[in-house]
């Protein structure tokens, strides 16, 4: 009887384990999403909203935008499209913060940068998100969804990995939904951007 109970318990654990929900959505869907294709140029969208002097200096942009994204000083740029209203983005933020720390730890901070763009979020809303999750990288607002529309009206969180070329930024990778391993994600960024 004890063995039976253990058997059922083991099966229930397997059925209810997070892995069994792999097919459950891990992103807030956006009706009509048409992500931009890997290999294409990333549109020169404006970065809107104030950033701290330190972050502005790191990105090589003025503190107060709007600044065209092509002005950002980076060999590879990870652009997170998020929303403070998206529970998946909220859940993913500690992992993205880990990714930022890992970039620093690996000595890549001068070459690989991360920014976030808050789809449909005002400066106030972006600030709430920044403070709540102690986000160490620059976040920009997109209150009118104009940037969101220009980058394919994607679900959130959505990650574009961009490589700097003489013409601007080119998309080398894209990812919808939660990041499960910052190390794997960074390895992919390094490989795809040819760093």
């Amino acid at each position: 009887m004890k063995a039976l109970a253990l058997g059922i318990l083991a099966a229930l654990i397997l059925l209810t384990a997070p892995g069994s929900q792999a097919l459950a959505a891990e992103a807030s869907e956006a009706p009509g999403a048409k992500p931009l294709a890997v290999g294409t140029a990333f549109p020169d969208v404006p970065l809107i909203g104030p950033v701290s002097p330190e972050l502005a200096d790191s990105l090589g942009i003025p503190q107060n935008g709007p600044t065209p994204i092509a002005k950002v000083k980076a060999e590879a740029l990870i652009v997170e499209i998020f929303s403070m209203y998206c529970p998946f983005c909220q859940r993913d933020t500690p992992t993205v913060n880990e990714l930022a720390a890992l970039i620093d730890k690996r000595g890549l901070a001068g070459r690989v940068k991360i920014i976030g763009i808050g789809a449909g979020n005002s400066d106030t809303e972006v600030d709430i998100f920044r403070k709540k999750f102690k986000v160490p990288f620059a976040l920009f607002s997109d209150a009118t969804f104009a940037v969101h529309s220009a980058v394919g009206q994607v679900g959130t969180p959505y990650y574009y990995v961009l490589k700097k070329t003489p013409q601007g930024f080119t998309i080398v990778a894209a990812h919808l939904g939660l990041i499960h391993s910052p190390a794997d994600f960074l390895a992919d960024v390094v490989a795809k951007a040819g760093l």
Binding site: G7, Q21, A24, S28
Partner: peptide, 24 residues
């Protein structure tokens, strides 16, 4: 046998065409 049966039906449950959660 119980474990085997439950493991057998697990993929069918996971393959539910309606994704779970709020987003789906």
């Amino acid at each position: 046998l119980t474990l085997a049966a439950l493991l057998w039906i697990a993929p069918a449950m996971a393959a539910d065409p309606i994704p779970g959660g709020l987003a789906g």
